[in-house]
Design a protein around this nucleic acid. Structure first.
Lengths: 246, 246
DNA sequence: CGTGCATTTGAGAAGAATCAATGCCCGTGG
DNA sequence: CCACGGGCATTGATTCTTCTCAAATGCACG
């Protein structure tokens, strides 16, 4: 069962060794398969678990009173889901399977036990959350201050990057298993406009598209129009132990 | 010097006692006064410190390649600033004094030492960051999916709430010491449009305004048009110790 | 071979941006 | 004491991006 676990998100900050990472996955209950459209957890439910995504895509979305939906993040294998709501009495986001998925549930108490006993695990989690926070800051900037074209470009580059890091894509294109309406909800656009932007990108030979398969034909042009920052994560964990406290 | 420290942000999760909170402020160097427009830390600088805001307002902003600016957060007294960039080699955001401010710098190593030695402090910080993450999710939804009017309403309600929690405002109105251009950069609007929305709100008797002083005349109507969620923080810290692990 | 969801396309409307000018407040220096 | 100048706020006129509404097409699946 441990043959192919997606460890990559737990290596980011150079804080956990192999044993630590095994411990992380050992927190989880037995993996469960769920079909597309399954809801892992609805917003307003008390957050008693977090989730490790082992395969497939999951969307985290927030519902507004008027019925509008904002998709906060498309989660890929290896991601730890549902942690933002740990600070709340009622979950803030709904977790929905965008494809068939395999997940492992983790009771928050199990997470807490490891968190309390291992400062390195605690620090790693702390930094992971900060990293997600920076990602949200960048997304805020994209939605608040860039055009529809730039937002779509940023999304495609982001997914491409993350799929490569996860070892799922190889630069020969990838499946984007979401509807244009979901892309709209992610980018703050309507499905109709997402469709027009895709058309524009195909005509401009920036991308090729066949159903939900996307190939990035001109990544450097996409990058320059996306206004997307390349964030380099710190691999220096000396702050934890107090080294170099000069 | 400890008479009037803004402790409220360190009481949110019921994890720290008085001594713990003293320890937090003891991490900081001697308080420093800075004038309006002073830059605490510029983005792309290596993040060697975080900052406790003791008085005044600070803006955290991200600059896009095209020169556009997104203001991520208006920080109020008691906030811990600059922590998102702890996960990065180069800071993601610029911290700028919006008013004259008093801050205390904290070396990341000092923060790390307390983090490593006190699981309760670590957990409190973890939850604080998650809380900020939820706030960003809500902001994303506001900018991506609501009108200019709703965004301004949400901003005013948010500031009012936070000023009250900080013990700075009392419901009789408050100073909003930022230019309309900065409000635009915060909400993903132009200064011109922010101005028109304010006019609309004054005409609709939702608010009163004199220079930068704002009075919320009809908070309940503002709330209903803002699409803003009231988030209730968890005060149950049992997950940390592993109680109720049922 | 329907049925249903998703995509595509068109036409028109609306919200917000842009461009440009004017006015106001306030600090500064003559 | 008053003129000047800079930063903001305000207002109008116009443009543009994106939305809305509506209909048609296409694809997957039973």
């Amino acid at each position: 069962m441990l043959e192919r676990l997606p460890f990559h998100r737990f290596k980011e900050f150079n804080l956990l060794d192999d044993a630590d990472r095994q411990a992380v996955f050992a927190l989880g209950e037995a993996p469960v398969d769920l079909p597309r459209h399954a809801v892992l957890r609805r917003e307003s439910e008390p957050p008693r678990h977090i989730y490790i995504l082992l395969s497939g895509w999951v969307g985290s979305s927030v519902l507004l009173p008027g019925g509008e939906r904002q998709i906060v993040k498309f989660h890929l294998p290896g991601d730890l889901l549902g942690t933002p709501s740990m600070c709340l009495a009622q979950a803030a986001d709904t977790l929905t399977a965008l494809t068939a998925v395999t997940i492992s549930r983790v009771p928050v108490a199990a997470f807490g036990a490891l968190f309390a006993s291992s400062p390195r695990f605690a620090a790693s989690m702390f930094l992971s959350v900060q990293r997600e926070r920076v990602a949200l800051m960048d997304r805020l900037a994209a939605i608040g201050r860039t055009s529809a074209l730039a937002r779509v470009a940023a999304l495609l580059l982001d997914i491409d990057d993350r799929l490569r890091v996860a070892g799922i894509a190889d630069g020969e294109g990838f499946e984007l298993p979401v509807t244009q309406e979901q892309i709209g909800d992610y980018l703050g656009l309507t499905a109709v406009h997402v469709n027009r932007v895709f058309r524009q990108m195909v005509e401009g030979e920036l991308i090729a598209r066949d159903r939900q398969r996307i190939v990035l034909l001109d990544a450097s042009r996409l990058r320059s129009m996306s206004a997307r920052q390349q964030r380099v994560m710190s691999r220096d964990s000396s702050w934890l132990s107090g080294e170099h406290a000069a």
